[in-house]
Design a protein around this nucleic acid. Sequence first.
DNA 1: GGCATAGTTTTCGTATACGATTTCGTACCT
DNA 2: AGGTACGAAATCGTATACGAAAACTATGCC
Lengths: 228, 228
Amino acid sequence: MTDFSWSSGDVTVATGSKSEQAYAAVKAKIVDGAYSPGYRLVLAKIAEDLGFSVVPVREAIRRLEAEGLVTFERNVGATVAGIDPTEYLYTMQTLSIIEGAATALSAPLIGPVDITRARAVNAEMRDCLEHFDPVRFTRLNQDFHSVLFEHCPNPHILDLVHRGWNRLASLRSSTFRFVPGRARDSVEEHENLLQLIETGADADTIEKAARRHRAATLDAYLTQTTHQ
Amino acid sequence: MTDFSWSSGDVTVATGSKSEQAYAAVKAKIVDGAYSPGYRLVLAKIAEDLGFSVVPVREAIRRLEAEGLVTFERNVGATVAGIDPTEYLYTMQTLSIIEGAATALSAPLIGPVDITRARAVNAEMRDCLEHFDPVRFTRLNQDFHSVLFEHCPNPHILDLVHRGWNRLASLRSSTFRFVPGRARDSVEEHENLLQLIETGADADTIEKAARRHRAATLDAYLTQTTHQ
DNA sequence: GGCATAGTTTTCGTATACGATTTCGTACCT
DNA sequence: AGGTACGAAATCGTATACGAAAACTATGCC
């Protein structure tokens, strides 16, 4: 099937300056979870691994810092950015707003073909619920929204969405993810969202639904942590 | 009076690494308009001006690129980012959404004291209308919203606001700014916004009002350009 | 006169080198 | 034993240097 992978900002895929390559390489490792939060990123070591000098690596790290994937302390070094509950809240809240707007803006441009594709992805997600497969589920979830955002008329907003996703990717398999029962609700909300788009609901309704979709995950986390 | 200056992200004011200093220096020149859009930023030249080597300057430029204030082309160099009508639309639309959210989130935390301060700023803006003073007006406009956002509970959103403002700062005295009559409406919308906050209007109402406040400026520009 | 082309200049990209700062370990003193 | 001071190691920050790519210029050809 189509690959809806998102790579946030950078268009150049693999080739490019060494700084770009280093950026892509380190980012991939962070997003994939090879480098976990707290992992110490030593410039010289990364440079050696890649066969580059430290200069382009440093540039890459600083760029990742700007995106919030890495924290950098002067004369000390870089570590993969963790995400504490507060940061999580900020990120999810912001993402809720951004995704809401992105969905509402995209909605009028989404055609029947897109809807069908989105439904197919959602069906796969439903499938993931039967066999417990959180990793695949998360991936498909992004695919689903990527279909909706494919025609987003504002690239700035789309970029913010991707940044948020990347930020959350750090906490793959962390305590935040997979609140029990939330995944099932999520799939239903997807279908609900598709119906709203299909029937040409007004922008405000769609925006609110998309917002709540994200906010609900945050709420689920919050009630979970306060209860235990 | 209080200085509501915003500096987007960086906390370190003047001192810091040379890279930070270079970042601050170049950014200031761009935002202040000393470097106009299209201005060619030659690394070696800036480095010489600051008395640094090119390495930290390069890092600073790349950081500015990440913020959208500078465009960078491989093996060619950096130029101060212009902002064409499309970019303007994207930025304003995004800012409309972000400011709307920021205002709604901040509203419950805004007290009578803040309202009074905001009204004072707005009065000064009204004053600027009599004597034609666009530069001061723009500055005060940011001060006004800075008062509202002072208690914004989500720093990520606040950061996005500042980024948008910086982006727009590039086009100081450009064709986009100061659509006739828009400024006067803006002041009234401010007062309207304050009343909504004062009377504890619901979040959705406040958000929509704040959104429209920004969107109206965009609309004014759009109708102006299509009419002539 | 206009266009293609080769040579020159400018400017970027990155490697290397070294000084500065922090961190960590060890010895010493109380 | 605990804490402090000193020294060594690790790591970052930046200067310098050089190769590579693009932009510019001048020359020759049509």
